[in-house]
Design a protein around this nucleic acid. Structure first.
Length: 491
RNA sequence: CGGGGUGUAGCGUAGCCCGGUAUCGCGCCUGGUUUGGGACCAGGAGACCGUAGGUUCGAAUCCUGCCACCCCGACCA
């Protein structure tokens, strides 16, 4: 399956595309810019979704569902929001088809034109805030902490599987609060949830920060983000959390009565991560042998492959495997026993390697005789013979070790690809030749950011949280600056 | 949406310049021998050549439109 697999060094984009396709994560649909997420890819998404869903509920949120279609006029109510999304909206104009008069196929029935056109949600702020108006009367109704798992559509010009598709799956949290402080706290809390998830489950280190005006969400006062570094030295925004201020409350007239019996606009947040995380996962850990998955998100954590010469041997091995499988499952480890007789062991080894299964156990007649097993780990591509004694604890520890080893490796990669400079000449050189994150001073203006982007293609990925204050001079304009920001070329 | 490229069996391809319905490999099916890192032998099935038109006695091949994908830009999670 993975013969003639392109290496990262040869063509990084092609390497990525081939992993997605050959590891059976997703494929292009018949509709431009859309993807079919295949069972193996969707299983990863389910792991991501289930883990995050629990984290959201643990922080007090409830799930709800809002409609796919939004009246066109809603989008118009928040000025910055329209500006940001109008150019990429799919629009519903009719609600019926009819037989073509010439008898060939179907046409849009001109008599079924909608009075008010609908758009397919690019995000749900507008319809949700229009609904919240009815739900919120008093400070007693606050905070309102809601999340929804949904698909959204943004008509993209250029798409890539998982990283940018016209339709994608995501979750969007939308919360309403009585005070600004509480809303900011919520925004930061959810950013924390995202960075915990990225680092502990995806084994992907992220920078936490805020966006500059240029990169901010359409309609937000502040956009917080987590930024990860991919193996090609480009940054990927992996999640965002927005402090929306009272922008949407004012646009949709969502007011509440305080304890003091005064009417005030509520304070809002929204936050989301999408199927893009799967792209991030692929580009964080995978290698020239294919996908590498962190144990905590791998649909199959351990695969067991029998090696045998005849039916009788297979039977004996299978018996043993069932015992081992039970032991492992008791520890909460997901196990797949691949006893297909249609493929040889070597073929299976390669298949699971390509699909990124963290641990592989091989068991043959020699192992039955010696009470041993061959254990191979995907991340380091090493294998060893070990006794069957305490196999459940061994595998459990091995999975833990792989999880942290992947994270450490990614941290190391990020360290090696993070630079600091005070010279624009060196900055350009770093961006051009090395990529990665670059910490540099910036004068805080939109103009400078745009000029730097024009000249180097690098953008400000974030203004890191908790960064030391340090007086310096903007790398481009020379004007004074109080702290460094992070630049990189981005996805 | 602009510039460049590609589209032939499930996948990768030859053929296209110089028109005569298609090559090879992998995979698939059947039988046998195999099984500790992508097995071997024998036989077999599978393609209206992306799509719609045009030129022609005849089009994978020449011409035009459209569609999809890839790369580079602008835009974006």
């Amino acid at each position: 399956m993975a013969e003639n697999f392109t290496s990262r060094a040869k063509d990084y984009s092609q390497w990525y595309n081939e992993i997605v396709e050959k590891a059976e994560l997703a494929e292009h649909s018949e509709v431009r810019g859309c993807m079919v997420i295949k069972p193996y890819g969707f299983a990863i998404w389910e792991k991501i979704r289930d883990t995050l869903d629990k984290m959201f509920k643990d922080t007090g949120h409830s799930n709800a569902y809002f409609p796919l279609f939004i009246p066109k006029s809603y989008l118009n109510k928040e000025a910055a929001h329209v500006e940001g999304f109008a150019k990429e909206c799919a629009v519903i104009t009719h609600y019926r088809l009819k037989k073509s008069p010439d008898g060939n196929g179907l046409i849009v029935d001109p008599e079924a034109k909608l009075d008010e056109e609908l758009i397919v949600r690019p995000t749900s702020e507008t319809i949700i805030w229009n609904t919240y108006r009815k739900w919120i009367q008093s400070y007693r109704d606050l905070p309102l902490l809601i999340n929804q798992w949904a698909n959204v559509v943004r008509w993209e010009m250029r798409t890539r599987l998982f990283l940018r598709t016209s339709e994608f799956l995501w979750q969007e949290g939308h919360t309403a609060h009585a005070t600004k402080e509480e809303a900011v706290e919520e925004t930061e809390k959810m950013l924390g949830v995202y960075s915990d998830f990225a680092e502990k489950f995806m084994a992907m280190p992220v920078l936490r920060g805020t966006k500059t005006e240029n990169e901010r969400f359409a309609g937000a006062i502040d956009t917080y983000c987590i930024e990860a570094l991919m193996q090609d030295g480009k940054a990927l925004q992996a999640g965002t959390s927005h402090f929306l201020g009272q922008n949407f409350a004012k646009a949709f007239d969502v007011q509440f009565v305080t304890k003091e019996n005064k009417s005030e606009f509520v304070w809002a947040t929204s936050w989301g991560v999408s199927t893009r995380l799967i792209g991030a996962l692929i580009m964080s850990h995978s290698d020239d042998k294919g996908l590498v998955l962190p144990p905590k998100l791998a649909p199959v954590q351990t695969v067991i492959i029998p090696i045998y010469k005849n039916e009788e041997q297979l039977e004996k091995i299978s018996e043993k495997v069932q015992q081992i499988k039970k032991l492992l499952e008791k520890k909460g480890i997901s196990v797949k026993y691949d006893d297909r007789t249609t493929h040889k062991p070597g073929w299976k080894f390669n298949e699971y390697e390509f699909k990124g299964v963290p641990v592989r156990i091989a068991i043959g007649p020699r192992d039955l005789e010696n009470n041993t097993l061959e254990i191979a780990r995907r991340d380091l591509l090493t294998k060893e013979i070990t006794s069957q004694e305490n196999i459940d604890t061994k595998i459990e520890n091995l999975l833990t070790d792989i999880q942290s080893s992947l994270f450490n490796k990614a941290i190391k990669f990020r360290q090696e690809n993070t630079h600091q400079t005070d010279s624009f000449v060196e900055f350009k050189e770093l961006i051009e030749n090395k990529g990665g994150f670059i910490y540099a001073h910036w004068d805080g203006t939109k103009e400078t950011e745009e000029k730097i982007k024009e000249e180097t293609k690098a953008t400000i990925r974030c203004i890191p949280l908790n960064i030391v204050q340090e007086n310096g001079h903007c790398i481009y304009s020379g004007k004074p600056s109080k702290q460094r920001v992070v630049f990189a070329k981005a996805y």
